[in-house]
């Protein structure tokens, strides 16, 4: 019984950590621009695909990963420069639609560059499962969980201890006042896309050995990451992390104990209930509208 529960939790935490990293990307961009970037899932895909290509070209894994993250960050910055910035005076809804367009474009481009099949990527430290209390866990799951913890720590430090992080927070609270205080909000916007792409990219590379990678891999991960961000309270980075873990674990437990047919439904029902009871998410700050 315990073994079974452990098995479900391993699965839930691994998957949930991926949702969390994707959700974190949503939160960061939302903070800087009020835009929900629906191309977030595509960052996951670009990083995974790039890593696989680089590995096939014979580049050692650590170098391949660094280059792939760099490529993904470049894609994020280009997205901001070429698609978001030219339209920065448009309404938020227009910008969101632009990101949907960008996501379709990126998927199409990926199909052209990498083909339409799926690719596998070797796990960082082998695929022999580790048996804990009768449940089997892949070493890759430890990498996913470990990397997520490190990223949470770095993000906390960045937002609370560095000037740049504080400037980002200030921009999210009030862009106009932030600009008056000498913060370069345009730079902050670029930075937010770069950071979100980096987080999506890291998530993509961590999960690729488990999920495989293909042009459409980011679609559902993006959607679940979005749910995580909403659940935790849009714009609250730590909320996105909690949201991701809640969605991941509840999915695994539902599949294990109730019925796998309701797995996705239960995750969405939790979100609905939370949003009805707490419209700003679990950890969101109540928004105030100035009249």
């Amino acid at each position: 019984m315990v073994a079974e529960l452990l098995q479900f939790l391993f699965s839930g935490v691994t998957v949930g950590a991926t949702y969390a990293l994707v959700g974190l990307g949503f939160a960061i961009i939302y903070n800087a621009s009020q835009v929900i970037n629906f191309a977030q899932g595509e960052f996951v895909m670009i990083a995974g695909m790039s890593t696989v290509t680089l590995l096939n070209a014979g580049i050692p894994m650590p170098v391949a990963i660094l280059i792939a993250v760099a490529i993904t960050i470049a894609a994020g910055l280009l997205l901001e420069k070429l698609a978001i910035e030219p339209a920065r005076d448009a309404s938020v809804v227009t910008l969101i639609i632009i990101t949907i367009g960008a996501s379709i474009f990126l998927r199409g481009a990926a199909e052209l560059i990498w083909g339409r099949g799926f690719h596998s990527m070797p796990a960082f430290s082998g695929s022999d499962p580790i048996i804990i209390g009768g449940a089997a866990m892949l070493p890759q799951s430890l990498w996913v969980a470990g990397a997520t913890i490190v990223i949470i720590a770095v993000m906390r430090w960045f937002f609370t201890r560095t000037l740049l992080g504080k400037a980002m927070l200030a921009t999210s609270y009030n862009p106009l006042v932030a600009r008056l205080m000498g913060i370069n909000t345009r730079f902050i916007l670029s930075l937010s896309f770069g950071m979100a792409a980096m987080l999506g990219g890291i998530a993509g590379i961590l999960i690729a050995p488990i999920s495989l990678t293909y042009p459409e891999v980011g679609v559902m991960l993006g959607l679940k990451g979005f749910c995580a961000a909403i659940l935790g309270g849009l714009g609250n980075p730590m909320g996105a992390i909690a949201g991701g873990l809640i969605v991941g674990i509840s999915e695994a437990l539902t599949a294990g104990y109730v019925s796998s047919a309701y797995k996705d439904a239960v995750a969405f029902v939790i979100i609905l209930v939370v949003l009805v009871v707490m419209p700003n998410g679990l950890f969101g700050i109540r928004g105030t509208e100035r009249v």
Binding site: E4, Q7, F10, I210, A255, S260
Partner: peptide
């Protein structure tokens, strides 16, 4: 009789259930 969702990345819960 187990199912998984579109784009799922980990099927161990369902397989655990079948295994048991």
């Amino acid at each position: 009789d187990e199912t998984h969702g579109k784009g799922d990345t980990d099927m161990t819960p369902q397989l655990t259930k079948i295994k048991n």
